[in-house]
Amino acid sequence: MKRSWICASIFSVVATAALADPIGEWRVADGTAHIQISRCGQAICGKIAWLSEKGVDENNPDPRQRKRSLLGLPILNLKPAGDNQWTGTIYNAKDGQSYAASLALRSEKVLLLEGCVNGTNICGGEEWTRVR
């Protein structure tokens, strides 16, 4: 009986550790892109790994960057902010703006992203689904 309890405890710790890791590929809410999240030192970073339609960063405020491909574009830079949560910035290529961002792992397959206009309470959020 004691051995079963120890195995169950170890499984619980391993399952919790897996939950606390957003590293992988995620489908955005509208299904038009996948974001690859990886480690960047103590932080996590995200880049566009797949797009339903190819495009360039045409809305970037820097005219020199408006012809760069969206595929491979870094959009997330987040630092740990507690259990299963990260905060930092996200770049939105649809409007060429960067926003304050928070990311929370809701389950092994669901990630909640929230972006806010810097210095305001104007925010929006969506759930991403794990692809890999």
Rank of each mutant, 00 (worst) to 15 (best):
S4K: 14
V131G: 00
L78K: 06
C7I: 14
R68H: 09
D95F: 08
E127Y: 07
P63V: 00
L78M: 11
L105W: 05
G124P: 01
K79N: 07
S38C: 05
A104K: 05
S102N: 12
K67Y: 07
D83K: 14
K109Y: 12
N84A: 11
S98L: 05
I37D: 02
I44Y: 03
K94P: 10
L51F: 02
K54T: 15
I90A: 07
S52F: 04
G125V: 08
I10M: 10
T120F: 08
G46C: 02
E126K: 01
K47R: 12
G119S: 06
V14D: 13
G88M: 13
A104V: 08
D21R: 12
K109Q: 13
A49M: 11
Q36S: 13
P74E: 09
R130K: 01
P74D: 05
K79S: 13
A93P: 07
L76M: 04
W86N: 09
P61W: 03
L19N: 12
N60W: 07
L103K: 10
S98V: 00
Q97N: 14
A8I: 01
L113R: 12
K109R: 15
S69I: 06
Q97P: 10
Y91E: 09
R68G: 03
Y91K: 00
A81L: 05
A18T: 03
N59Q: 02
Q85A: 14
T87E: 10
A43S: 06
W5M: 14
A29Q: 13
S9I: 10
W86H: 11
V56T: 00
E114I: 13
S38R: 01
N92M: 11
Q36L: 13
P63A: 08
A17N: 14
W26R: 08
K67W: 04
L113D: 05
G41Q: 09
W50N: 10
G31D: 05
L70S: 00
W5E: 15
S9A: 15
S12M: 14
Q42I: 10
S9V: 08
Y99A: 06
N118L: 15
C45M: 04
A20S: 15
G124S: 03
I10T: 07
L76N: 00
S12T: 15
A104E: 13
A100K: 15
I122M: 15
G115A: 05
A43I: 04
R106E: 03
K94A: 14
I44E: 06
A33W: 07
A93T: 05
S107D: 14
R68F: 09
D21V: 03
R68E: 12
G72V: 02
I90E: 08
G82V: 01
L73V: 01
A93D: 05
E127A: 10
R130W: 02
A18P: 09
S69P: 00
T129W: 01
L76H: 04
C116G: 11
G31N: 10
G119P: 01
L111Y: 00
K47G: 00
N59V: 01
